[in-house]
Amino acid sequence: MSSVTPAIESEENPDALPDQTLIHIEKLNAWYGDFQAIHDLSLEIPKHKVTAFIGPSGCGKSTLLKWINRMNDVVPGARAKGRLAISGDASNDHAEINVLDPGLDVVGLRRKVGIVFQKPNPFPKSIYDNVAFGPRLHMKTSKSELDELVEWSLQKAAVWDEVKDRLHGPALGLSGGQQQRLCIARAIAVGPEVLLMDEPCSALDPSSTLAIEDLIFELRTQYTIVIVTHNMQQASRCSDKTAFFFEGRLIEAGPTEQVFTRPQQKQTDDYVRGKFG
């Protein structure tokens, strides 16, 4: 089992630890064709914390998120310059990953950096097959190991109790909130270090949103989470660090509490008070 569960099993209080930067972004510029979506952006994303990206539509926050695991590769005309690196880690025995390196093993990167999308997108297969999809791609596991891994992932994603009796039923038969938690379980099942979430609650009702937020709060003890959100309350509720973007530039980044109560920039102040956006 040790090959399939993440090595990090820290039970310490994450708030008590000093910040340790996992993802370094320096002078990043990104384009879609001729349109520059990100200008000279530098940001550090702390390990085992929740970092929220906020800002009005089209400010480049989703673009940045999708560069972290190179999902932009499939977008024609998308390119980026600058430095985007994920720290090496002795316990996970990998050296620093230079994400923008054109020769990088993207498949390996995406195994370490999972992504959850805006709309729940389970495969039209059974619940079990959805969670087992990633492990089947990457690992060689026996039937019993796979069963255990699927249960572990579903439990982590707080959806096990609701689906344990119909694991082989269709995933599309679940409610929207359950589907989204299933998608999180699917992402966790390959043992990532980072979870990227692109507005994971925007298609869900309030109670499902609450369940996902609780889950995000739980998961940060083991994963570094980056969440893009339009919902200011959500960012203030569940993130440790907040970065505010505007027109492709990073305006302000800092501890969530500071960004929301004592913003340093006027634009941030206007935005978090709801004057625009």
Binding site: N69, F117, F123, G134
Partner: peptide, 20 residues
């Protein structure tokens, strides 16, 4: 969105085509 989900889990293009 299904293709993105598969790619996001680290599937190659061929695996995405075959399995999804």
């Amino acid at each position: 969105s299904l293709r993105e989900a598969s790619m996001g889990l680290g599937a190659t293009t061929w695996q995405t085509v075959r399995d999804v």
